[in-house]
């Protein structure tokens, strides 16, 4: 999952990015002003936008309106130092999904960020399951047929991303866009290597069972759920 933080206070943005990377293992990009944030959000490769209200060049509310104006439904978590119910109501009415008042609790921010991403993917419960697979997004653990599968962070992120939409085909490009931030080199064969490892580990957990991840040549990957075996 990839998060965009639009925050002009450099140190705060740094801390937020570090917390989101270290905690739920998200890919994080930062924008220091509203216009940059708007441009970056325009790539539509984010699963959550954390938005400060008081921003240079384009304030948070205006950015939010632009975002929703072009039918971008990415979940938005607002960070605000402003008081008052009217502001909050205005924000929620403008299309914000949640808000946190500064100074906030980092743990709460992480929890809310995860909940918003989950909701954005259409899942209500932190445990996702498909066929014999179970992914606990809270503990970041994976079980197959009750057997724990030990995955690297990137492998876990790929599986988590796929399991939100079983049967949907995800292109390598989309996986790259949503799992890596700008700090990473973008090479599609990185994805191939990780998927290959992931496949091996999942098969090892249930020897002889059908493969879980199907490769659609030239199109991408999807979870195959056994019907077409």
């Amino acid at each position: 999952m990839r998060v965009l933080i639009v925050e002009d206070e450099a140190r705060l943005a740094e801390n937020l990015a570090a917390a989101l990377r270290e905690g739920p293992g998200l890919a994080v990009d930062c924008a220091a002003d509203g216009l940059t944030g708007d441009a970056m959000a325009g790539y539509r490769c984010y699963d959550l936008i954390v938005l400060d209200l008081m921003l240079p060049k384009l304030d948070g509310l205006a950015l939010l309106r632009r975002l929703r104006g072009r039918r971008d439904s990415t979940p938005v978590l607002i960070l605000t130092a402003k008081e008052g119910k009217s502001t909050i109501v205005e924000l929620l009415n403008a299309g914000a999904d949640d808000y946190l008042a500064k100074p906030f609790d980092l743990g709460e921010l992480i929890a809310r960020a995860k909940a918003l991403i989950r909701r954005g993917k259409g899942a209500a419960h932190p445990t996702l399951s498909a066929l014999d697979l179970e992914v606990n997004t809270f503990e970041q653990s994976v079980h197959r047929n009750g057997v724990a599968v030990d995955l690297s962070p990137t492998e876990y992120r790929i599986l988590e991303y796929l399991i939100y939409h079983p049967r949907r085909i995800f292109s390598k490009r989309e996986l790259l866009e949503h799992l890596y931030d700008y700090n990473w080199e973008h090479h599609s064969n990185v994805i191939e290597a990780h998927v290959s490892n992931l496949r091996k580990k999942l098969e090892a957990a249930a020897p002889g069972a059908e493969p879980v991840i199907e490769t659609m040549r030239g199109r991408g990957y999807r979870l195959c759920l056994g019907q077409s075996a």
């Binding site: 705060l12 570090a18 500064k102 609790d105 980092l106």
Partner: peptide
Amino acid sequence: AAHELKTAVAVIKSSLQLLSLR
């Protein structure tokens, strides 16, 4: 002023919480 102070406090608080995250 409140906004500035809150932001400054938010920075310190998040720095400390980040340290105790793991």
